[in-house]
Amino acid sequence: MYRLRFHGRGGQGARVASKVLGTAAFLDGYYAQDFPLYGAERRGAPVAASTRIAEDPIMERGVIPEPDIVIVMDETLLQDPLTMPLSGLKPGGIVIINTTNSPAEAKAEYKINANVLTLGITKIGLDMLGMPILSTLAGGVAARIVGLSEDSLTEAVKKVLSSIITDKKLLDKNVAAALYCFNAITPIETKIELKTIDTNKKKSTVISLPFEPAAVSSPAINATGNTPLRMTGNWRVFRPAWNYEACTRCMICVARCPDGCILINEDGYPYTDYDNCKGCLICVEECPTNTLGKVMEVHAKKVIGN
């Protein structure tokens, strides 16, 4: 059985990617499961989804703790201690990373001890769809790795997307982008068996909790104002970039930022708190002068573009 885990950020399409893959596998005659990990996190926050593919009926349920293949749709997640996308990856497993770096560079940078494939699908998404929504692209990459057919992938993209979007042109662009990614990847020889041999039947790991009164068992936060520790700055796909020549210190950007991430320096000029800015880009949209522009974020720290 193939066990795959997709890691992305809310809005990037990890859930739909797993669905495209599962549907394509089903159309190719396999048994398949796909499902997101439910969490109360939202657009920009780390999310995960899983797909299982096998020749026999799949008796396993629930999250995949030990995947054969991990698809990292957002590179910044590799450094996120709360996500740890590679946790549980089986020895000899495969990691596909959305990055413009080469596999060797990615392996060195993130100290990965597994087979690594890379493809810059954000760039492909922006070029081919005009937006950084990567569901069908990641689905296409994964379909190639597990050896599914182009026809089933095409059908799966159409089937899954037609229940989400009504725009026929956008649907066609998604099919093209999925096939482009499918063909841009050179699969690695794997030794993963499609016949289900091992199942995850281990001893129950459910911990039994003793009864405690509410004062003990309900969570209470005794700190104040500590959310900046969460550093939501790594949610960004684009970052707001400043060029102060035209800035009139009108304070419009400050008033428009939902998160309060625009601060004022001693000379009265606004600047971004990049540790926490989620990259909504309302400031860029609202600035009445040309002071604010946007630059694509490649890493959490590095910046490319102008």
Binding site: E41, T232, W235, M251, I252, A255, G260, I264, G279
Partner: peptide, 24 residues
């Protein structure tokens, strides 16, 4: 807009979506 009190009584880093109108 310039008269809006500068004090922030709600800090950034919350899990609401980027661009949440309710949060603003």
């Amino acid at each position: 807009i310039k008269d809006i009190p500068p004090e922030e009584n709600m800090l950034p880093g919350t899990p609401t979506c980027a661009g949440c109108g309710g949060l603003l």
